[in-house]
Design a protein around this nucleic acid. Structure first.
Lengths: 214, 214
DNA sequence: CGCGACGCTATACAAACGTATAGTCTCTTA
DNA sequence: TAAGAGACTATACGTTTGTATAGCGTCGCG
């Protein structure tokens, strides 16, 4: 059959099948399931990837590459996750990768930290620009703010996924519908009518090294 | 030894040991580990609880009861999770229960949904009172706002736990230190300098059934 | 005393999993 | 053509898991 059956190498077929399985069932998906999905034997996975961990690493790399590519193609967004899901409308073949990304975030560890770090850096830059042109309010610590916003946004979405048990585009759509208005409200007008709490916290902090605002 | 060795029944010892083990290692903790922790045989767990699921249900009930009790004792807070962690300073014996709560939230499913629902209801009431006395800004949909805030807050904390891999009070303290200032900033002054996005979204929504604010 | 109920243990069972090994087939290369 | 490397499969190993069963000891009650 040479390289005529599927156009891509078996290792790539296995990797793509693994991404699909992990996206669908989480990282508890068995190697046998993946082997079936890829249409190969169990041993071939080991032959190419050494271990489940090795396969997982290959999947991580692949998904990060796809997301990176997607990030380069599409316009920047304050929320890369939302951008990724939105991109699925045009390119449905990306669905497993995006869902895998969510699984990876939920699983914690190095992969999750890397993704969050990257998203934080991206958002920090976005916010910085916004502050410069006056569309975003300044912050006492822009990096901490970016990290907090990423953690909250992604974490909230993950919690929604885990609760619904529905790891699909539908879950993302549901979450978007539920959270867009409240988040816009919060981002626009805040929550507290006075700055008493913030003032108290700022005063309580050791010294006034960070300037106040508004 | 009658009932002198530990003062509580074996079933309760098993349940408490299970809460500790689940809190420490997640719900993948094996029944044998729990049996060892409780100082009983594997069979006794089955004898009392029927199955792992049964044990899990007993733990759920126990933890919810403890949290309920804690909620009744301590003053109400906009963030029951923070209140629970804060209470651990006085009552360290609650630590496994609080950590179990986090594990349960992260695991999703019915337990997670129930906890989030209860927290949402609690926060909604809190916000409503705040709106009434003018300390909280009004919202077009107070219930949706409460749910969004709970999902984001809890989700963000969970993501931090999962990333650090540290399911302990320390992780909570770290997260608090990192998120208090940004959240206060966001709650006080918002993020966007203008209401353009919110206005556009409101206009885009089918009709003006929900009144504007501020 | 006799006997059943209950708390409790020890052991076994079957399934699922990741991993390891031996071997087959098919190209490539000298 | 012969040899070797690499893709690929079939099968087995050892561990861990939840679950099931058989039995032991003790207490309370008729």
């Amino acid at each position: 059959m040479r390289i005529a059956d599927e156009d891509i190498t078996s290792a790539a077929r296995i990797r793509d099948a693994a991404v699909r399985c992990f996206a669908r069932a989480g990282f508890d998906a068995s190697l046998r399931t993946i082997a079936d999905e890829a249409g190969v034997s169990l041993g071939l996975i080991r032959h190419h990837f050494g271990s489940k961990e090795g396969l997982r690493a290959a999947c991580d790399e692949r998904v990060l590459w796809l997301m990176d590519d997607l990030g380069r193609t599409k316009a920047q967004s304050p929320s890369p996750i939302d951008a990724a899901f939105a991109a699925m409308a045009d390119r449905p073949e990306l669905e497993p990768a995006v869902l895998y990304l969510m699984r990876g975030l939920a699983a914690g560890g190095q992969f999750s930290a890397a993704v969050v770090d990257q998203m934080t850096a991206s958002l920090e830059e976005y916010l910085e620009k916004g502050v410069a042109d006056g569309s975003i309010r300044p912050s006492g610590d822009n990096r901490a703010r970016a990290r907090y916003l990423v953690l909250s946004g992604v974490g909230g979405m993950l919690l929604h996924f885990m609760q619904s048990g529905d790891w699909s585009e539908r879950a993302w759509r549901d979450f978007s519908a539920l959270s867009t208005r409240p988040s816009l409200e919060l981002y626009t007008q805040g929550l507290l009518a006075t700055s008493d709490f913030l003032d108290a916290y700022t005063a309580l902090s050791s010294d006034g090294v960070e300037g106040g605002d508004a």
